[in-house]
Structures are given as C-alpha cells and as structure tokens.
Design a protein around this nucleic acid. Structure first.
Lengths: 115, 115
DNA sequence: TACATATATATGCTTATCCGTATATATTGT
DNA sequence: ACAATATATACGGATAAGCATATATATGTA
C-alpha cells in the first residue's frame, strides 16, 4: 500500500462514500451499500472489487451476502488518512444523506440473520 | 474545501509529489519543482494552477519567480490528511529521489535572493 | 529598447476511468 | 431440480484527465 494507490482509490466518489460508510458502520454487505448510496449493484460491486484488489477492504461471505469491512492491518498512515477523511466528511451533505438512508433501510440482512 | 475535492487533487502524481515537497520545504518556486520532479515546466504550472484554484496552495511573486506554499488556513482534517500522506510518503523511493534531486540543485533562486 | 528568464495558459490529441447493460456464479428456499 | 436473491464480472461506449507543443505575459538585465 502506497499513498499513490490509496489516494487514487479515494478519488472516486463511489469508493469514497462506500469507505466512509464502512468506517462508520464497521461492516456492510453489497445490498446495504447499494441501498444507502442509491446506486446500481454492479457499480457498487465494481468499486468494492477495486478496493479489495488493493486490500483496502476485506470481504467475507455470510450465506448469500458478502460483507465488506476496512482492512484492520492497514499501515498507520493509511488509517490516519482515512480518519482525517472521515472527519472532513462528517459535515458533508452527501455523507449525512448516505448514513440516513442506510438507517432507514428495512430488512437489512444483519437484522435478519444472527451474525 | 471538501474531502472529495482534496482527494481528487491528490490523486495525480505530479500534484502529490509537488505537495509533498511543499510540505517538507515550506516554499518552492516553479523552477525548483520542475527540477526536483524532473518534469517540464508547463506540466508543473498546470498542476500547481489546479491546486491554487482550490486554494490548497497559495502563490506569491518574488521578482521573476513565483513561490508556492501550502495554504495555512486549510481545515484541520485537511492538514491531518496531508500529514498522513507525508508520513506514508517518507518511505517511498519517489519521494526520497525528489528530495535528493532538489537538494542537489545548483543556483536555487532562494540561495541568490534575500527572501 | 531588446533580449533572456520565469511562469501561465490555450489547443488538439491521447489515454485512463467510469458507466450501464448483459450475463455468469453462488446460495437459499420450495 | 427450479426459482429467487445476492453478488461478480465482461464488454463496448462515453467522458474526463492528463499530455506535449506552442505561445503569451511578466520581470529583470544589458
């Protein structure tokens, strides 16, 4: 992991929004992100794949769902960078909207299964 | 300034390398950056203009030279983000090479004029 | 004034990146 | 086995981003 790689990944809005939600929520499946960000599923999957390829996020299957979370083994500088980004995002409309939309989701898989 | 804007600016190598040198050195003119990064002048100027347009850097004329420095009034999260980026860059070959090249520059304008 | 140096910007081109659609794979439930 | 749900990926097209060259502007110097 290098600053170049991480920053390129963070330069796309879909990846940025996904990561900020993952920072806040810890773990989310594709359908939750698709709902929260109000985007089509292949778009979410494609960008999560890019993050996964560089090991910024880790995926984990649970039944039909695949959950993503931020790699806990990122170097310190990368965690600090993500923290700073989250701090800057807290004021942003887009971020607030995404969180709100996620909270409003009915039948979230984690509410149905015992994780 | 939003995370989206700053991260997009940081996603280009020329801008990233320029900013890291500015973080380290405080203030540099276009010709110093051109020399240190080993790139052509219009390329440096173009990317500095992008950073200036979003007020990530401030320019200041001193005779024929125009010096750039990082805006000291950036929000805290942006400074933290840049600090984390620098921290991650310290290990990188490219960064070390750029710093070394800068130090090797003869007749640096700041060495000739009384700033 | 004329020339040299430093910097900025406009232009047309190339390339990278992102997109939506279609489709493939995996899992669960009937 | 079949249908439904969740996710991943391949593909061709669109858009954005970066590039080098050429040129314009500003400053300093002879």
């Amino acid at each position: 992991m290098t600053p170049e790689i991480l920053l390129k990944l963070l330069s796309d809005q879909t990846r940025l929004r996904s990561l900020m939600l993952l920072m806040q929520e810890g773990e989310l499946c594709v359908c939750e992100l698709t709902y929260a960000l109000d985007l089509i599923q292949p778009k979410i999957s494609r960008h999560l794949a890019a993050l996964r390829d560089m090991q910024v996020v880790i995926d984990k299957r649970a039944g039909q769902w695949i959950y993503y979370h931020i790699n806990s083994k990122l170097p310190a500088w990368a965690n600090e960078l993500l923290q700073a980004t989250l701090k800057g995002s807290l004021d942003e409309k887009q971020y607030k909207r995404d969180i709100k939309k996620l909270k409003s989701m009915k039948n979230r898989p984690e509410n149905r299964i015992c994780a």
